[in-house]
């Protein structure tokens, strides 16, 4: 996650010199966008919490405390314990660590591959483009979650299954948005000027078109991480995702569901963590859209 923030900030720096005189730079636009700032603060908070889990977690997420099972909040266990006496606060932090890490890593390959194939298809068109777009149509015909479940089932349950399933399916939206952005950019005057100036197609593509088309993919990647985290948590809930004993928000909700009558917080708290993360990343995405595309 911290890498995502760093890379988007890095992009801001590299684009700064290109800004037209009189238009405020990316940095100051970011500071003046309440949406961006709220999203950045929420996301940074949650990333800091899960990164610092070993420091502020107090207990190991798998340490059992048989003397205090299903205990309420106390000085000993801030948010109480589950049925095995495991500390809920630690499990929340470590669970978030797993889910955010898996959610972020699962988006990296689809992002890179989708942007690459979308750019190539949009610029060159032709048979490759037609073929790739048919594949995109087919993948989008499946209900997203059904395809993910089926793929995780066939390639094997667990983290590597999640990476493969998302790697095979999630690139299509990036490919489609980048393709249409590239097709528009290809016909613009400054691209014609760059081509007419004698620059090679590769250089025009990666140095002139891509920096302008990638913003859409970056903005979408924020909501995509939310979708992927939701799917990872849902897979965990179904027992198809991150496998125990590794803590995960989804399996915490499954475990807590058995105690709805007596200890509702066990199922509610992990959900609140997911919602908080989701709101933070969505705001960040909206804010990025405002900052990167001011008109």
């Amino acid at each position: 996650m911290s890498t995502a923030l760093a890379s988007s900030a890095g992009l801001g720096d590299s684009e700064a010199p290109q800004t037209v005189a009189g238009r405020p730079g990316l940095g100051s636009r970011a500071l003046h966008s309440p949406t961006f700032m709220a999203g950045a603060i929420m996301t940074t908070t949650i990333v800091a919490l899960v990164v610092l889990a070993p420091v502020i977690g107090r207990y190991s997420p798998v340490a059992l405390d048989p003397l205090h099972p299903l205990s309420g909040p106390s000085g000993l266990h801030w948010l109480g314990t589950d049925e095995l006496g495991r500390d809920t606060w630690s499990r929340l932090l470590y669970g978030g660590r797993t889910d955010l890490q898996v959610g972020f890593l699962a988006v990296v390959f689809p992002f890179c591959f989708g942007v690459f194939i979308g750019t190539v298809c949009g610029y060159f068109g032709g048979r490759l483009d037609a073929a790739v777009m048919r594949v995109v149509d087919v993948v989008l015909a499946f209900p997203f979650f059904v395809l993910i479940i089926a793929l995780v089932f066939v390639v094997g349950v667990g983290t590597h299954g999640i990476y493969i399933a998302f790697g095979l399916t999630d690139w299509v939206v990036y490919a489609r948005t980048t393709r249409s952005a590239t097709m528009i950019a290809r016909n613009l005057d400054w691209v014609a000027a760059a081509e007419g100036g004698g620059l090679s197609r590769t250089r025009v593509l990666w140095r002139h078109i891509l920096p302008n088309t990638i913003t859409q993919a970056i903005v979408y990647s924020m909501s995509d991480i939310v979708i992927v985290i939701l799917a990872v948590v849902a897979l965990g809930y179904l027992g198809l995702g991150i496998q125990p004993p590794a803590p995960d928000w989804g399996s915490m909700i499954t475990d807590g569901q058995s105690f709805l009558q007596s200890d509702q917080w066990l199922a509610i708290l992990p959900g609140i963590a997911v919602v908080f993360t989701g709101i933070g990343l969505s705001l960040l995405g909206d804010g990025l859209a405002d900052v990167l595309r001011p008109e």
């Binding site: 909501s223 939310v226 939701l230 948590v233 849902a234 809930y237 989804g250 909700i253 569901q257 709805l260 199922a267 509610i268 992990p270 959900g271 997911v274 919602v275 908080f276 993360t277 989701g278 709101i279 933070g280 990343l281 969505s282 705001l283």
Partner: peptide, 13 residues
């Protein structure tokens, strides 16, 4: 915004 980040199965619970 709240709906965007909410797992539907958790909302069900």
């Amino acid at each position: 915004l709240m709906g965007l980040g909410m797992p539907s199965f958790w909302l069900g619970i």
